[in-house]
Design a protein around this nucleic acid. Structure first.
Lengths: 152, 152
DNA sequence: TCCGCAGCCGAACTAAATTCGGTGACGACC
DNA sequence: GGTCGTCACCGAATTTAGTTCGGCTGCGGA
């Protein structure tokens, strides 16, 4: 699907999405015009979905992060879709995973402080009739990869 | 900490990190030179930590995603640090959360297929002596916010 | 009031993005 | 085996953006 050149371009843009096209062209050994066209095609094909700044959450007054594993019942499509949608709209919510296995949903939440987290759990989550249970884990550290090397 | 102008710039860069400085300046109503200086300061202060392309995982031959909640013992700093480090180096691992609460670690894993996930769990995780248990949830959908609106 | 500082602006210069016509390699088809 | 069409790439030319820096302005302190 992706040739070696595409992979190299993707890797460079994962590392630093704001480096210039010329820089990427230079590092990959192709002409800037070619590089530009490759990147355009990668976006068009949906390989590159966007470019986003990575912001320090503490600077946004979100010093507390947690992961909340929730179970909802009944586990019908209507309930799942509605729950995902409405939870996703809450400002404390960073990310919603719809899963199968040990939980139905995993919700990444960020608040200014522990009180805010407690308020979220009590006022936003526990009051929902479809939520039959949830477990909360406070995040101490988070290691995230920006690039994904190919599997051996 | 951040004034209104900084917040606006951050928001725009979260939405699209590759739009031009001039564009950001125009949207925020300031001069390009001012905007450039603001962005430079935001990076210097650590508010902006980087810019990364968001890549479609299926295009990278990673059609399967899962979240694995793991318990390790003993829960000493040495064991935690070593586990985080070595798990984070595995190519299947996208992200490692170090948590307290219902689990010790939450590991986001991505593989080409279900066999790859099974191999990861059996060959990489279960064989570790410090791992006393884990639960796996397959990810069906993932909703992620690129921007974070201020809390009411 | 006056001074100093900080932040912003705009002009000038440098560098990058973008467009587009040309070129060569490759494969299909006679 | 030759010819034609296609595709990807390149490089020059043009448009646009990044970057630097001197000066202006408004504000707070003396």
């Amino acid at each position: 699907m992706l040739d070696e050149l595409d992979s190299a371009i993707v890797r460079l843009l994962q590392e630093d999405a704001r480096q210039t096209n010329r820089e990427i062209a230079r590092k990959t050994g192709i002409a800037p015009s070619t590089c530009l066209e490759r990147i355009r095609l990668l976006r068009e094909r949906g390989v590159i979905r966007g470019y986003h700044a990575d912001i320090d959450l503490a600077s946004l007054n979100r010093g507390v992060r947690a992961l909340v594993a929730a179970q909802v019942r009944p586990l019908s499509r209507a309930v799942i879709d509605a729950f995902q949608q409405s939870i996703g709209e809450l400002p404390e919510v960073l990310s919603v995973y719809v899963t199968a296995g040990s939980d139905d949903f995993l919700i990444e939440v960020t608040t200014p402080d522990i009180d805010g987290l407690h308020a979220f759990l009590a006022d936003r989550l526990a009051i929902r009739r479809e939520v039959v249970g949830f477990r909360t884990s406070i995040i101490f550290r988070h290691l995230r990869k920006t690039t994904l090397e190919p599997l051996a």
